[in-house]
Amino acid sequence: MSKKSLRLFSIRYSLITFFVIFSSVFSGCEKDNYDPENYWPQPGHRIDMVERYWGPPDDRDTYYDGDAFIMTYYYYNEGIFIEFYQDRVDFIGDL
């Protein structure tokens, strides 16, 4: 290989490596697209995420089911209740 082709290969390899690292880093930094107007809780969302967008619940219940701690939030304006299992949304139901 000549020096010129070796240099082009090195530059190409460096650019490809840079692109792979750059895309890997920024694909892992996803931002949620929620705001208070369009947020709707989904199974797996955390309690703090629900409270961030909807505020504190109008009412809440807590109980143990065996060793599991269950918390239920009631949002009367939205007409729903949300059950949390281990601080994550488990079930969403209508009031």
Rank of each mutant, 00 (worst) to 15 (best):
R88I: 05
D59V: 03
S24A: 11
G93T: 01
D58W: 00
E30K: 12
F84T: 00
Y63D: 08
D94C: 02
S2T: 15
Y73T: 01
Y64E: 12
R60C: 01
D61K: 15
E37S: 12
R52P: 04
C29I: 13
V89E: 01
I92P: 01
S10R: 04
D32A: 08
G55V: 04
I47A: 06
F18P: 03
G44Y: 02
Y53A: 03
Y39H: 07
C29L: 15
Y13N: 08
L15P: 01
F81L: 09
N77T: 06
S5Y: 09
P56S: 11
L95V: 12
I92L: 05
Y53I: 07
Y34T: 04
Q86E: 14
K3I: 13
D59P: 02
F69N: 15
T62Q: 13
T72N: 04
Y85G: 10
I92T: 03
S14T: 05
N77V: 02
S14P: 00
I21W: 06
P57E: 01
Y74H: 09
D67N: 14
F84P: 00
D90Q: 10
Y76T: 11
P57L: 02
F69T: 12
R12F: 14
I11P: 01
F91T: 09
T17C: 09
S14A: 15
F81P: 00
Y85K: 12
Y53K: 03
P57Q: 01
T72C: 06
Y63S: 14
I21S: 03
E30Q: 12
Y34K: 04
R12K: 08
M1Q: 05
I16G: 04
F19V: 15
V25E: 02
R88G: 00
R88T: 13
I92K: 04
D67G: 12
P41M: 07
D65P: 00
A68N: 11
E37M: 07
W40R: 13
S14C: 10
S24F: 11
V50W: 02
P57Y: 01
I47Q: 08
P41L: 07
Y64V: 08
F22W: 14
P41Y: 06
S10Q: 07
K31W: 06
R52Q: 15
L15K: 06
V89N: 01
T17D: 05
D65L: 15
R12P: 01
M71F: 00
E83T: 05
A68W: 04
P43K: 08
S23D: 04
W54R: 06
G28S: 13
Y53S: 04
E37K: 08
I82H: 00
H45V: 06
N33F: 10
Y64H: 10
D32C: 07
E51T: 09
S23H: 07
D32G: 11
Y74C: 02
T62F: 06
Y39A: 06
R12S: 15
F81M: 10
M49E: 15
K4V: 15
I16P: 00
W54S: 05
D65Y: 13
F19Y: 09
Y76I: 05
S2C: 13
